[in-house]
Design a protein around this nucleic acid. Structure first.
Lengths: 255, 255
DNA sequence: CGGTGCTTTGAAGCCTATCAACAAAAGTGG
DNA sequence: CCACTTTTGTTGATAGGCTTCAAAGCACCG
């Protein structure tokens, strides 16, 4: 546990990290979809550093690791908590351009733990400075709020499926959500890399890893998906989305 | 559909309805748990009428039936929506003292439909007047916010169970939530009347009505519950709650 | 090259849905 | 208040979905 923290500290680097794009470009693109005016590079003043995650690494809510706002430049993260029977429940996931811990800024919700997947590149923002800025800048604050609301609504849609429908539908909705998250800052590629292990997918869907493997196989056998390892492709995404009455909350708002 | 609306109108009555307690006493009791100062009868000026629901009756979100804030004096209601396969999903429920459609006031969320159960008595509040009042009265607004946040957190806890755990645990958590909701404005009775049909419980748990019946029977056979029709009692609620790591979000805050 | 962790596959058993019939309860109309 | 209809809840039999356990294949990494 202590070496994990050491790793977080050690990754504190000078402003730019290999990768090219300016920090926060992804987030700004996302927010722009929910803003009425141009937000430009309004967030640059709040950058406090960047980090590269070498191995899968949790940030424990209680230990102050989440004192900053974490924005994902590339890669993935997810929010999880442990249940009474020892199982892990994964409640939401975050892709490029996402804010991992918005609730720290706006609400005083219970804070789940966050796990950053290996390879993720993060930008850290100053929580209190950003908070003050948003208090005075209603337009920007509104964009943040709408952006987070879209996430909430997408989560609500997913949860409904996970509670009521069988494994195949659950899996498809999860994959559509992944595509939605990816398509937010750039057109989603038709081949998507599932960024999670099957045991993690299982903890999202409320299934076992074994069954996740079988469900994926069945979807390929049925001609719904094509697959090459962790890469998958919908043979006909539009039809799948229509059959499930799936509603994209991020992608379709591009302006 | 049109006769349902007519019924809502027709039930508009003079200020007091059979039942004794002053309107909003339940809600004010609830809010008091989340307020730092005494809130007294701060909400009385916003009352715009009362209604008694004779038969189970939906208020359709799209038709403006939800222009007011609905507060439950006694009885129950729930939030539901229809899924692509024709199944009904019930996302949350509301007991005595609850606000059924807070989101109408504070957020611009997607609005689910609400169904009021037969026998429910409602108080209607003026949405815009209350909204303005809360803008100027931060303390009261904060109590509302914390109160709704408690609901959100309870829902999050329930959802986690419904996604990941089998039917018996789901049922127990639902019953504990019912007790929590009931115990908010007065000590919860040890015998609880399940206010919903088993088909409604099924749509909450993501099960079939048949299985709901069997699960209840099994819980009685295992000595976890006692039961007399729609009345149930936990033989040992504290132990059940502990085993499930169940956290009450309303009741335990009584001050 | 041999770990180590992730994925796949098979067999067996439990959990839940479906279908159908019936019982019980609640609403309806005379 | 009674007979009638409709809804709701119970029970059994059967089938399908998902988990568990165990073993083997595969990929990555030191």
């Amino acid at each position: 546990m202590s070496h994990q923290n050491a790793q977080l500290e050690a990754a504190d680097q000078p402003q730019s990290v290999a990768g090219g794009a300016a920090p926060l470009a992804g987030l700004e693109t996302r927010l722009q979809h929910f803003a009425k005016r141009d937000i430009g590079e309004a967030l640059q003043p709040f950058v406090r550093g960047q980090r590269v995650i070498k191995r899968d690494q949790p940030a424990w809510a209680e230990r102050g690791d989440l004192a900053h706002i974490f924005v994902i430049e590339s890669g993935w993260a997810y929010k999880f908590d442990m249940m009474h029977d020892g199982r892990r429940h994964i409640a939401d996931f975050f892709g490029p351009g996402a804010i991992c811990n918005w609730s720290r800024l706006s609400r005083f919700e219970e804070q789940d733990d966050i796990l950053f997947k290996a390879g993720a590149r993060l930008t850290l923002l100053d929580t209190t400075a950003l908070d003050e800025h948003l208090r005075e800048n209603a337009a920007l604050a509104s964009a943040f709020k709408r952006h987070e609301l879209a996430r909430t609504m997408r989560t609500t849609q997913r949860i409904r499926t996970f509670i009521s429908l069988p494994a195949m539908e659950r899996m498809l909705v999860l994959l559509l959500d992944l595509a939605d998250e990816l398509g937010t800052i750039a057109p989603a590629p038709s081949w998507i890399t599932i960024p999670f292990a099957q045991s993690e997918v299982a903890d999202m869907l409320g299934l076992t890893p074994v069954h996740v493997s079988r469900v994926l196989k069945k979807l390929v056998d049925n001609g719904v998906l094509e697959r090459d390892g962790h890469e998958i492709r919908f043979v006909d995404r539009a039809t799948v989305a229509r059959d499930l009455a799936y509603r994209p909350f991020f992608k379709s708002r591009a302006g």
